[in-house]
Amino acid sequence: MIPVLAVITTTVLGLMVGVEIAVAFVINPVILRLPAGASLAARADGGRMLGRAMPFWYIGSLVFTVGLAVIAWGTLITTLALISAGLLAVSVIMSVLLLVPINNRSLTWTADDHPENWREQFQRWDRLHYVRLAIILAAFVLIAVAATEL
């Protein structure tokens, strides 16, 4: 059971990290260089789409990681999984407190109705996202290491 859960956890968390890397280093930089109307529409659409999926993905990753820690209790896997779970919990809290408010505001912005500092707000979101990405990447590495301890 431990090997199966380790593979599932590594896969779910790894795919989430991959999506977030694509958002950070490909999608958002391209969108930010677009003219205002197109950029605002693309960010709003992406925010709505990922805003529906990512909460389940983040919480699911955390649940799988905690589950791995529980079923491997008393082993090195437990220690690594608990540290990973702590990092994932920080990423969820950071998302809710810092990133989601910016995202929710931006969902209503249009080419005709947006704040003057819209690019700065997106850049702030992107900087916070880089920090969150570093946190979930560290959590992924710990889970990958835990999976090799079987």
Rank of each mutant, 00 (worst) to 15 (best):
V96R: 10
I77N: 09
F25N: 09
A138E: 00
S39G: 15
T79G: 07
W125I: 08
L150W: 05
V12E: 07
T148M: 14
I21L: 15
L68F: 10
L137Y: 06
S106T: 05
L32M: 14
V17Q: 02
A41T: 10
V19F: 13
F122G: 02
V66E: 08
V90K: 02
W109Q: 12
S84D: 00
R33D: 14
P35A: 04
F64D: 03
L137N: 02
N117W: 08
A111I: 01
A146P: 00
A72M: 04
V12W: 12
E120W: 08
L137K: 00
I93E: 01
A6S: 15
R105G: 10
F122T: 01
R124V: 11
L88C: 07
T78R: 12
L40P: 04
T110K: 06
N103M: 06
P3S: 12
N103L: 06
G86I: 06
A42I: 04
H129Y: 12
A146D: 02
I93N: 02
P35L: 00
A24K: 00
R119K: 06
L34F: 04
G74S: 03
A81S: 15
G18T: 07
D113E: 15
V92S: 00
L97G: 12
A36S: 14
T11I: 13
T79I: 13
L62M: 07
A138H: 00
M49G: 06
V4N: 12
P35E: 05
E116V: 12
I136Y: 01
G51P: 06
I21A: 15
P35F: 01
F122M: 11
G86H: 03
Q123Y: 00
R132H: 01
G37V: 06
L107Q: 15
T78E: 14
N103I: 01
A6G: 12
E120S: 14
L133F: 10
P29T: 09
V30G: 06
V100H: 01
N103Y: 00
T110H: 08
V19T: 14
I143P: 01
G37A: 11
F140H: 03
A85V: 10
S95A: 12
A72F: 03
L32T: 02
R48K: 13
F56W: 13
R33K: 15
E149N: 09
R43H: 14
L68Q: 11
D126A: 11
H129V: 07
D113M: 09
L82Y: 04
I102Q: 09
A146N: 02
